[in-house]
Amino acid sequence: MITIVSHDAGGAEILSNYVLQNKNDYQFVLDGPAVSIFSKLLGEINIKSLKETIGNTSLYLTGTSWQSEIEKLTILTAKNNHIRVVSFIDHWVNYKERFIYKDQLVLPDEIWVGDEDALELAKSIFPPEIVKLKSNPYFESLKSYFRNWKSKNLSDDRFNILFICENISDHAKKSFNDERYWGYTETDAIEYFFQNLEKLNIKSGKYTFRPHPSDEKGKYDWVKDKYREYPIQISKKIPLFEQIANSDLVVGCESMALIVASLANKRVVSCIPPEGKKLGLPQSKIIELRSL
């Protein structure tokens, strides 16, 4: 029996597609955004507590989260009960912080990554022998989806801009007790984007802001109020990959969604301001606004 443990959206997308593509006996310890992501892809799921799974699992397969400690607790539980545990990293940033629990580094038996860039980075931070390159099941699913996609908005001739929002300040506050730890916040990034539209040759278009799963409702209403001259909507009612497929330009800071957009052959821009941290995504796939 394999036990899947997931909370945050990025890891949930990978692990739910892993389950879909790899037939086996599974049980699930899910919370937060992962619940709806798994249910949408796999149907109704019987969710268990971590404690319920200890006596009947041969492997724990986890994501990594900043919103929750469940994956770190799973690693500790697995180690204490001599059960193999593997974590699939879904991103390219903050690797070490993903495994810090109460100021201690808590590592699984193996760390899986989904591309060569992540492999090189992970091996520079963790013991190289525990880092393994695996096919990213979420990306494989998306590649197939985008190949077969037929836009539902072919009659809409406006230039469509999708802004992927990220909960940067909350993440920094929780991890480092400083919402400006990385030199900027999500508000700074949005304002920097609007201040530099001419660098992207955007003269008119339709703007859609997609909130992060951890964002409170109404968090980005200020954008519509401040930039009234632009046709802005705030929406995450349709799946992310549909929003990306229907967009001409995808903008964000360093969300995994920017890599997803590059898989769809979209123009992708990071709007981390000049005072912000170095872009952590594979840079060959992303245009940096501050470098234009």
Rank of each mutant, 00 (worst) to 15 (best):
N94A: 14
V113E: 02
S144E: 13
P137G: 03
F88N: 04
W92N: 04
R84A: 12
I168N: 00
W149T: 10
N201M: 12
D157N: 14
L133F: 10
D156L: 01
T185G: 08
V131C: 13
R84I: 06
I168C: 03
I168H: 05
R180P: 03
Q195L: 14
Q104I: 15
K206A: 02
V93L: 12
L154M: 14
L197Y: 02
S155T: 15
L119E: 12
R180L: 03
A118N: 03
D188L: 11
Y138P: 02
V86M: 14
Y95E: 01
K174A: 12
N167W: 13
P127G: 10
G114V: 03
L162K: 00
D109R: 05
E110S: 05
V106C: 08
H91G: 05
E186R: 03
E186A: 07
V93Y: 07
N160V: 05
E97L: 05
K152W: 01
F146N: 08
R180Y: 11
Y138G: 06
E97F: 07
I130E: 00
K150L: 10
D90P: 08
S204A: 15
N148Q: 14
E186P: 06
V86S: 12
V131R: 02
S135A: 11
I202T: 13
F194I: 10
E198R: 13
K203P: 07
R84P: 03
N80M: 08
L197S: 07
K206G: 02
I190E: 07
S151A: 02
K123I: 09
N80A: 13
K203S: 15
T187S: 02
K203A: 07
W92R: 03
D188C: 10
K143S: 03
V106H: 00
F176E: 03
L121C: 06
E120N: 12
K174V: 05
S155D: 11
E129L: 15
Y192T: 04
D170M: 05
I125Q: 00
K102V: 06
R98M: 04
V113F: 01
K102W: 01
E198F: 14
G114N: 01
R180G: 00
K79F: 08
D156P: 01
Y207P: 02
N153D: 12
K152T: 09
P128G: 06
V113D: 00
V93A: 14
Q195C: 15
D90Q: 09
N80P: 02
K132A: 13
W92A: 01
E120G: 04
E97N: 09
I190D: 05
Q195Y: 10
D170C: 09
E140Y: 10
V86T: 15
A118R: 01
D109W: 07
N148V: 03
T187V: 10
L107E: 09
E129I: 13
F163E: 00
K143V: 13
P127T: 08
S169N: 05
I130P: 04
D178V: 07
F126S: 00
Y138N: 14
F88V: 00
